[in-house]
């Protein structure tokens, strides 16, 4: 791995100040470090943000759950408050990677990386989340731009994510058998005004499946999706699943999610 300078940021301001064109924020490092080892990415400066106090912790109000960016997946999965307010979010966190990855990997790191098969982006979309950063608040619908691409500027740090508490919700993931990333992940959330169906793993970036949402808006039941044929022209296709198969996985995962909604 190429040499770099390691910085331990004391606070958000400190982290932003230390950033440059050739720097990276380090949180859990579960994607960043492997990609640096493979020399897919290299930096002059690595800024550790994991220990910044303002990036920790979980706050629950009557309407939302706000999770600090440096909160690990294991902490989210173990939180009784999250489990009570949005059980599907706690379930999602407990299924990311493996136990060791969950002990290091963080919410902020996951969404800033925006891997097309990451789980958290679907939660952000389905739970109509707001991403808090070092200098603004961004609606989740405007945050995830494309494959590994977000609305974040180079020196902008995710500080927290605020998830709206839905009436009911469920996340169903079809994991890759070896690596457990989402070959397809479907997050269905029934809000007071609408139903959101967010899909990850199936296309270049997380998206809302309007075809499913339309049916569920009329009749919120898994049977309402029985006769649906999803358009698979934009779906990913690889050795694990063809585009057509992925479309079928999205549909069956959505049906399961609707049936499991609580």
């Amino acid at each position: 791995m190429k040499q770099f300078n390691f910085h331990e940021a004391k606070n958000v301001k400190d982290a932003v100040k230390a950033s440059s064109k050739k720097s990276a924020f380090l949180s859990g490092g579960q994607t960043l470090i492997p990609s640096m080892k493979l020399r897919l990415s290299s930096f002059d400066d690595v800024i550790n943000v994991k220990n910044i106090k303002d990036l920790q912790g979980i706050k629950v109000s009557s309407k939302s759950v706000t999770i600090g960016a440096a909160t690990t997946h294991a902490e989210v999965a173990a939180s009784k408050d999250v489990k009570k307010a949005i059980p599907s979010l706690s379930h999602l966190a407990g299924m990311i990677g493996d136990a060791q990855v969950r002990n290091k990997g963080t919410l902020g790191g996951s969404i800033a990386n925006n891997d097309p098969s990451a789980c958290y982006p679907s939660a952000c979309i389905a739970l109509d989340a707001t991403v808090h950063t070092s200098d603004r608040k961004i609606e989740a619908s405007k945050f995830f731009k494309g494959m590994f691409e977000t609305a974040l500027k180079k020196d902008e740090l995710v500080t927290a994510v605020e998830f709206k508490i839905p009436e009911s919700s469920s996340y169903v993931k079809i994991p890759n058998p070896a690596s457990r990333y989402a070959m397809v992940g479907v997050y269905v959330a029934k809000h007071k005004k609408d139903v959101i169906c967010a899909v990850t793993g199936a296309q270049a970036v997380v998206y809302r499946c309007k075809e499913i949402e339309k049916e569920l808006g009329n009749n919120f039941s898994s049977d309402s999706l029985n006769n649906l044929n999803l358009d698979y022209s934009e779906m990913n296709s690889d050795i694990h699943a063809s585009a057509e198969y992925r479309a079928s996985l999205v549909l069956s995962a959505a049906q399961k999610a609707v049936a499991n909604c609580k």
């Binding site: 390691f6 490092g29 492997p34 994991k50 294991a74 060791q100 990855v101 002990n103 290091k104 690596s179």
Partner: peptide, 26 residues
């Protein structure tokens, strides 16, 4: 060495982590 196999697992502050996916300075 790609954080899949877990043969490098150690405990840091009591939690199991993959030591091939963590910097020593961290």
């Amino acid at each position: 060495d790609t954080s899949q196999c877990g043969s490098c697992v150690v405990h840091v502050n009591g939690k199991s982590v993959k030591s091939c996916a963590m910097f020593a300075v961290d």
